Amino acid sequence: MRDLGEDEKANEIIEIYIQQRKDEEGIFDIANYPFSDDINDKRVIERFKQENTRHKNYISPEEVIDSLVGKNGWSQSDIEILSSLTTDDFYQIFTSQNGDHLSSWVDVCLQFARIVNASEKQKMISNNATEALVRIGRQSRLNARRVSKYGIRIKDDV
């Protein structure tokens, strides 16, 4: 497209391609592409490098939560990742886990509610995690008992 003088369309096609394939591991690693010498579009090279870096730096919410267990601190990127999670995301995380670490994970997510001057993002983390626990607790009386240890009280309508 660039050869035809259509830079805007070429850039648009690049962005569409990236958007459609953004979840594919390694797709933007030009160094591992056998015909990388044939890629000479600077925009393609630049955007692929950006996306490849983004993929390499990706840390899952589960990894963030696990890394905070037993710590008294967190990074701004930890807060950004966890505050981007919805109630549904926390519900999925909590219900997909089992084992001894689950209680620690829940505690990590609820700890921000105990901070005196918590930021809006920290409050959002605890609020969304709490809403997920309420949802879990409403599923059965057993779950209501399970979430009660985190201070979640479910009325007897279960």
Rank of each mutant, 00 (worst) to 15 (best):
L102F: 07
Q122L: 07
V147Y: 11
R135F: 07
I27H: 09
S75A: 05
A129N: 08
G5N: 03
D3T: 09
K49E: 04
F94W: 12
I65C: 01
W74M: 07
N52F: 04
E51Q: 12
G137P: 02
E46V: 02
I79W: 14
K49W: 02
P34C: 08
I93Q: 01
Q76W: 08
R21F: 03
E15T: 10
S140H: 11
D66H: 10
N40W: 01
I13L: 13
P34E: 13
K9L: 11
R2T: 15
G26R: 15
E8D: 08
S83Q: 06
I79N: 13
Y91T: 03
T95Q: 05
E8N: 07
R145L: 06
S67Y: 02
V158N: 02
K22I: 05
L142N: 00
I152T: 15
K56A: 03
N143V: 00
Q122F: 07
R135H: 03
P61R: 03
Y150A: 01
I93L: 10
I93D: 00
I18H: 05
D88V: 10
R54A: 10
F48C: 08
Q19P: 06
Q19W: 04
E63V: 04
R153A: 11
A10Y: 15
F112G: 06
Q76P: 08
Q139N: 11
T130I: 09
Q111E: 14
N72T: 12
F28H: 00
S83I: 05
P61D: 03
S104N: 14
S67R: 10
A10N: 07
I13N: 06
S96T: 11
S103P: 05
F90P: 00
Y17V: 08
D156I: 07
N32G: 10
L133T: 00
K155L: 01
S103T: 09
A118H: 03
F94L: 05
Q76S: 14
S96E: 12
A144Y: 00
I59N: 01
D78G: 04
G5C: 01
K22D: 08
I27R: 14
D66W: 11
L133H: 02
Q20D: 12
D23W: 13
E51C: 04
K149F: 15
E24K: 12
I45S: 06
G5I: 08
K9Q: 12
I125Y: 01
G99P: 03
A118I: 05
S84F: 13
S77A: 07
R135K: 06
R146F: 12
I27E: 15
R2M: 14
E62I: 13
S83E: 02
V108H: 02
I45C: 06
F28Y: 03
V69P: 00
